[in-house]
């Protein structure tokens, strides 16, 4: 008995190390996605067919774009709850501008207006948060309500149709959406990894006081993250509006959980200071594939929602565990 104990302990140690390694791995969620597909594909008609993969991509790309912006905000330790309302407002403003029933301005002008409005709304959020030092949660919650109400008011709840073909092409041709998304994702990842701003962003998220003392312009860095978040939401709005051929004052109202959830599932820390665009992609991919596969399995929406909620909760627990492990190792 006395001899066996240390052997068991020795066996347990590699397992613990393996478990810690697995939890800490940045490819965990991607691995889980592949495992999910591998496990479900034999029972799920058409899950890995080309048509379904294209279908998943069409739904995933706008979500990923919004999540990119949210990732930056979360790296600073903040949160942006207003992204869905930015999507709705930019959708109706853009559609009003370019619709044949509206002022029929050129598509390019409408697009620029949408993106500028998105960035501007992000700037308002960022400005209030940094200048008035208010919690991001409250500020973006308030702007979510304000912008959502404003979108409904200016349209009187009516959707806007008759959008020009040049605009609709952005939703119909997956290659355009894919190109835009990849370009944006790569640019933001390069900024995060290779620029001073990227390092500042992580520093602000890890410890804003220490970052400030070290000379990081904390306010400007945080402000810029919200501007990017607003811009990304507007870009997603372009894709969603084009995909649905409609400017809608309730566009994206129901996807906030998916956006924040996917970002957290990917591994971006709720506590700030940690996150990568690739992780966010893995999170969005995982939740989208899960949703799609469970749908194809013909499970009820109640079961799907419960499954997604459970996954997001597990991801939050995992994040807390990683955070604790990180502290212990530090």
């Amino acid at each position: 008995m006395t001899i066996r104990k240390p052997v068991a302990a020795q066996r347990a140690r590699p397992f613990t190390q393996w478990l810690v390694g697995l939890i800490s791995s940045e490819y965990l969620v991607f691995g889980l996605t592949l495992l999910l597909v591998a496990l479900l594909a034999p029972f799920t008609p058409g899950l890995v067919s080309i048509a379904n993969l294209l279908n998943i991509a069409g739904y995933l790309l706008p979500l990923f774009i919004v999540a990119i912006g949210v990732t930056l905000v979360m790296i600073t330790g903040g949160i942006d709850l207003s992204v869905t309302s930015v999507i709705a407002l930019t959708s109706v403003v853009g559609a009003k501008l370019i619709s044949a029933d509206g002022s029929a301005t050129p598509t390019v002008v409408g697009l620029v207006a949408m993106l500028a409005l998105g960035a501007g709304l992000g700037a308002v959020n960022g400005g209030i948060i940094t200048c008035l030092r208010l919690p991001a949660f409250i500020v973006t919650l308030a702007s979510m309500m304000f912008l959502s109400g404003f979108a409904v008011w200016i349209t009187q709840s009516k959707n806007i149709y008759n959008l020009p073909a040049s605009f609709l092409a952005l939703g119909k041709q997956l290659s355009i959406a894919l190109g835009l998304t990849i370009t944006l994702a790569l640019c933001v990842q390069v900024v995060l990894q290779r620029t001073v701003y990227g390092r500042w962003l992580y520093a602000v998220g890890q410890n804003p006081t220490a970052a400030y003392i070290s000379g990081v312009p904390v306010r400007a860095v945080t402000f810029a993250a919200y501007v990017v978040s607003g811009f990304c939401a507007a870009l997603a709005s372009v894709m969603l509006s084009a995909r649905l051929e409609t400017g809608s004052p309730v566009l994206g109202r129901e996807i906030l959980l998916d956006i924040i959830g996917a970002t957290v599932v990917g591994g971006t820390s709720l506590f700030g200071g940690k996150g990568k665009i690739a992780w966010t992609f893995f999170g969005v991919l995982f939740l989208t594939v899960l949703d799609n596969a469970l749908n194809l399995l013909n499970l009820s929406q109640f079961a799907i929602t419960i499954a997604k909620g459970t996954v997001i909760l597990l991801a939050a627990v995992l994040d807390a565990t990683r955070h604790r492990l990180g502290r212990q190792n530090a």
Partner: peptide, 30 residues
């Protein structure tokens, strides 16, 4: 209540090769 998700679901039905679709849409346009 998410029109984009509903579009994905309808396309999912098409991928599966269903013989017909009954749809309760979110609204008249999307």
């Amino acid at each position: 209540s998410d029109a984009s998700r509903q579009l994905q679901q309808v396309k999912g039905f098409i991928t599966r090769g269903v013989d017909g679709i009954i749809l309760v849409p979110k609204d008249a346009k999307t």
